[in-house]
Amino acid sequence: MSLGDSFAVARFHVVRAIRTRTIVFLCAVYMLMAGGVAWMFRYLIKELERNAAEVLRVPVTDTPGAMMETLKQREELRSIMGGLLPDETLVEWGLNLPILTIPHFWLALIALPFLAAIIGAEVIAPGIRDRSIRYELVRTGRLELVLGRWTGQGALIAVATALSIIGPLIVGTFFMVQQPFGASLMTLLALTPRLIAWSLPFLGLGVACSQVTSNTNFARILALGGATATFIAYGMFESEWMIDKAPVVIDILQPVLPQTYMVDLWGPGTGWMLPSLILVGFGLVFTLAGYPLFARRNV
């Protein structure tokens, strides 16, 4: 095992993405998604403010955000935030943050696993298909290659995730009022490492699928199916029926689902760090799940 080789592979993966503009495409997808969500949430706020203005018999403002303090006291926004955030304490915490940061984080928690899984599925399989991987495998081990590609792709996702905050920042700063840029920036930056950690297990799942087949589309389907299965399994484990009927199964399987640690990523302070580390570990383990097959397969 050579960490140096993995680093060389990862570095080249990043350099190639920059050189070939792949990173630009990836960042654009992330930014558009984040910007789109922020834009939709802006409309939601606008509607809520219109309703509130009608009830309070005050003039309606064209640019949303002016009545945020009023909205925070009203049930509509609280119920929306209650739907996004897992518990009441976090709703209070969330209401004190710049308003666009919460839907940004919420959507990222839902969407990033699928994006990361698809991206991961493209990491190894195409190289097996066109045999280009042979040039590398003459010079380094298969494990080093897999770990290097996972690390490199993880770094690209980190960059795209970090840059995706530009979307809500632009919407908040230029298309809303009373959304202080500095506070929004700091909050979004504070949430970014959590999202990166959250992506890594699903990236690993994709990389694992990418090792077991040379068909990239099949790898994508496997990866998407795998990511979906984790959400379904988590939903089942949370159901009363499962808790009642199969508590042992839950005890064994729930800890290995990334979703188990999702709730802990919310909130102030440093409570998110340990679950994030666990998620990074999951990323590594999931990546290596495909390795036993890749290590023996014809390339």
């Binding site: 190639r16 050189r19 070939t20 045999r131 280009s132 042979r134 040039y135």
Partner: peptide, 9 residues
């Protein structure tokens, strides 16, 4: 290697 593609980019 025979028939191994090069990264065209």
């Amino acid at each position: 290697p025979q028939d191994a593609a090069l990264d065209e980019r």
